[in-house]
Amino acid sequence: MTSLSPSSGAPRRRSRRRFNSAYLFVAPSVVLIAVFIAEPILQSAWMSLHDWTIGSADNPFTGLANYRSLWQDSRFWNALRVTAIYTAAVTVGQVVLGLAIASRLRRTTWYSSLLRTAYFFPFVASLVVVGIVWKFLLDPQVGLIDAWLGDLGVSNPPQWLQSTSLALPTVIAVGIWKNVGFTMIVLLAGMQQVPADLYEAAMLDGAGPWRRFTAVTLPALRPALLFTTLIATITGLQLFDLVFAMTGGGPVFSTESVVMYLYEKGFVEFQMGYASAIAWVLFIIILAVSAVQLRVARNRDGD
């Protein structure tokens, strides 16, 4: 038999009130997430199964037809190839260069502080602004780069953004330049957390600079490296702003990324169902790549 005494009921009421208050406090966030994140995600999945045009009264259900069309769409595969090349090149370049710069600027002096700021500055600037500025710099007629090359005696400077073979490498180079400062700062913070006695012990054991870097610095930086690699990969797979500002996806689709193609289909041609299917394929790719990276890192930690 259970009896409720006044002394036991009061705490329970207080607990329930606290519970209700908590719910009310989180309610705005829950509502915002539900309305602006969860619902659009579910809606896009639903739209990807339809021949969906914005505002159309008739959006017939087509099942997996959009996904089947994607499979046969050479422009989509080209966009996927461009995105993969950009992501791989920028991630590797950004992490390797960031690591090299962080190693060189590890000691804090006025000079290294100045250089750190200089390297970090492009990361703070908007991607669109960076894209527009570089587009001007690389313009074959009025750009500074080709003018300097001309002064150095180069009679036919490269068509940086007009050549189908050079446009993507140029965008990759700008992407690395833009983001290397972020990687540098994260890795620099990681390096400064490494205890100095580890290096002293390594030196006592006769380890040289390279050995100390590979045996002490790199293992200690594993979490920071994983973080920067993951972030670089995800942002690389979402490539849009830079390409939109610098090349518009051209010439001849040589820099068209998956998100750029998605934008064209969804917001220029209004094929929202098809664009949603592209978004879901990209989402699955990002999920898979991130999972693989995390798994690999976890296995290494286990070693």
Partner: peptide, 17 residues
Amino acid sequence: RRGRATCLAAAVAAVTL
């Protein structure tokens, strides 16, 4: 205090909506 907290939370939620 809890009563006012509950009212405040409700108000925030309502304003947001």
